[in-house]
Amino acid sequence: MNRILPVLTVIAAIVALWYAAAVWMNRAWVYDQAARDGAEVSFLQALPQTMTLERPVLPAPHQVVAELVKSTFGMKVTSKKSLVYHGWVTLSATLLGFAIGTGAGILLAVGIIHNRAMDLSVMPWAIASQTIPILAIAPMIIVVLNSVGVQGLVPKAIISAYLSFFPVVVGMVKGLRSPDAMQLDLLKTYNATGAETFGKLRLPSSMPYLFTSLKVGIAASLVGAIVGELPTGAVAGLGARLLSGSYYGQTVQIWAALFAAALVAAALVAIVGLIERRVLVRMGMAR
């Protein structure tokens, strides 16, 4: 109970602020409309109209929620207007990209800790890769892959992987290096091989770091998948929904798609968190 109250207070404050902003931003349109009709409207008369516009500058919260509910539950999931359909298109690219990114990130991290040349050479490139705006590189990836005949899901997944491998590399390098000198010495006294040191000490030690990275990585994957949908002029996916919304000034649709993306991201992070909890409890690392 004493956790719910503060949360509700913050939400109420945000919603109130949002309504105020909606009224403030949309009133100009309402006044213009009235002026064109040669009518004079008072503030109180304008107030309800600012929240029901078809193409508001800022839609009111209830408009977004209504659109979200309608396009999620009110449509057949195969319909081009269904957010479930678009959400699934984006989600599948996200998951594939997340898998590729995580795999690549772990492999790079293993290489970095075992090979001095990789240690010195890979990290700067990995960091550089993240300083390039994804919006700049995404179209190039799409074009290049298209020219070799790869289309559809895979290019989006690769853009998604491009964003998600980085936190995994950083986290895993840190995690695989987390055993202290004493623990490494102990294995040395057993005359353990490098592979045994890796499997029995480094890898289990890195698990908490890995999961922290995965939480960042899966959210980044979703962003990557959405960004990957923008330059292709894709017809499906949450990114496509955002794009078509902006073409036709459908601000309500844009906001609904944004919220859908946020909800998917929150759900994905929560699922990773749940798996983390289960794994760490089984490993005896969480109480």
Partner: peptide
């Protein structure tokens, strides 16, 4: 060693 250094996951 000075610390027990047991693996917490075992």
């Amino acid at each position: 060693f000075q610390a027990a250094g047991l693996y917490p996951w075992r």
